[in-house]
Structures are given as structure tokens and as C-alpha cells.
């Protein structure tokens, strides 16, 4: 039953994603991509949860590596997106006289 329930979540989220993303204007496609990229670092949650103290050796190694890569993805992704979005300004506030 759990597989069915998870698949339902998956299908609904895909539809929601299509609805949301199709409204993003092409001006913002690069920030969209790097921002959604940061969201895909959500694997971090799974990697953190798998670092249980009862595990040993190789499993710890794999999970720690997963945490490192996912953290780069999350932190770097959000930071660079924020940096980019800071630059998008309206004319009134922009540098043009």
C-alpha cells in the first residue's frame, strides 16, 4: 500500500510542478534552473537520516560523501540564485538616469 501512496504523491507533485513552472517567464529561466537545482539537493535530507550512529565503515563513508555533495548543491544553489536575483531590478531602482 505504501508504494501506491508514494506514487500518488509523486504524480500529484509532477502535475503541480508543470502548473507552477509554466508560469515562470523566460527572463527568469536561469534563476529558476539554479533555484530548482538547489531544491534537488533535497537528497541531503535522506543522506542525513541515513547517517545513523549504529552504522559502521563503508556505509558511513557513502552517506558522508552523499551529505557533502548534497550540501554543496543546496548551499551553493540557493546562494548563487540569490546573487542572481538581486541583480534583477526595475528601471525606477536601476542605475539608468
Amino acid at each position: 500500500m505504501e508504494a501506491v501512496y508514494l506514487t500518488l504523491i509523486f504524480v500529484l507533485a509532477i502535475f503541480l510542478g508543470f502548473e507552477l513552472i509554466s508560469k515562470v517567464p523566460s527572463t527568469l529561466h536561469t534563476p529558476l534552473m539554479s533555484g530548482s537545482n538547489a531544491i534537488s539537493g533535497i537528497t541531503l535530507i535522506g543522506a542525513l537520516a541515513s547517517l545513523k550512529s549504529e552504522h559502521l565503515g563503508f556505509a558511513i563513508f557513502l552517506s558522508t560523501l552523499a551529505v557533502i555533495f548534497a550540501t554543496i548543491n543546496v548551499v551553493g544553489g540557493y546562494a548563487v540564485t540569490n546573487r542572481m536575483l538581486e541583480m534583477f531590478k526595475k528601471k525606477a531602482k536601476g542605475g539608468a538616469q
Binding site: 507533485a13 510542478g17 507552477l20 513552472i21 529558476l32 534552473m33 530548482s36 531544491i39 533535497i42
Partner: peptide, 8 residues
Amino acid sequence: AGALVGAS
């Protein structure tokens, strides 16, 4: 989250 990114 994965599905949102996948759709995007």
C-alpha cells in the same frame, strides 16, 4: 521536491 524539479 524531486518531482517539482523533474517537471521544471
